[in-house]
Write a protein that binds this DNA or RNA. Structure first.
Lengths: 82, 82
DNA sequence: CCCGATTTGTGCGTATGTATC
DNA sequence: AGATACATACGCACAAATCGG
């Protein structure tokens, strides 16, 4: 299928940092409507598998999008699209 | 306001080592009362962004202050002012 | 009310690559 | 050539909040 694995979109060792690539991909999903306002993102553990990166990398990407006002994180519940 | 960027206080490539500068800054906050006894410091990840340095550098600074008896680290909970 | 599963928060140890001395 | 310092990234364990049975 054309919608290949998201892990394939991440270039390990590429010019751009891993967490930036993940943040870009999530941002694209929000902007394109794949992720709608109020929706809950997959858990950090799931995103770890989806993107093939470490949890710390996922968290770094999420932290950036929180600062950008695109996401909100609630401990014990999850991460949500603003 | 005093909440200016702490990263600006860190001189990359300066005469003093990065971890020493971070340790000095945290020590100053403790001595000045900005950080009171029992308070929890920002997480290592947060300090990483606050000071604009790597986590290993933050940990080096914290380790020094632990040896000096100014901080106590509790795994899974955080770092606290003695 | 308690208990367990889920999820985020935090710290621990390590590996690899780069830059500098 | 070797040592030191730093940045990025990986995996793991434990703590704490939330929710459901």
């Amino acid at each position: 299928m054309t919608s290949g694995n998201r892990a394939d979109r991440i270039e390990h060792g590429g010019p751009r940092l891993l967490w930036q690539q993940v943040a870009d991909d999530i941002t694209a999903d929000i902007d394109s409507g794949v992720l709608s306002s109020g929706w809950r993102l997959p858990s950090e553990a799931d995103l770890t598998e989806v993107y093939g990166v470490a949890r710390v990398t996922v968290r770094r990407a999420i932290a950036e999008l929180v600062k950008a006002g695109r996401l909100v994180v609630v401990r014990g519940r999850g991460t949500f699209v603003v």
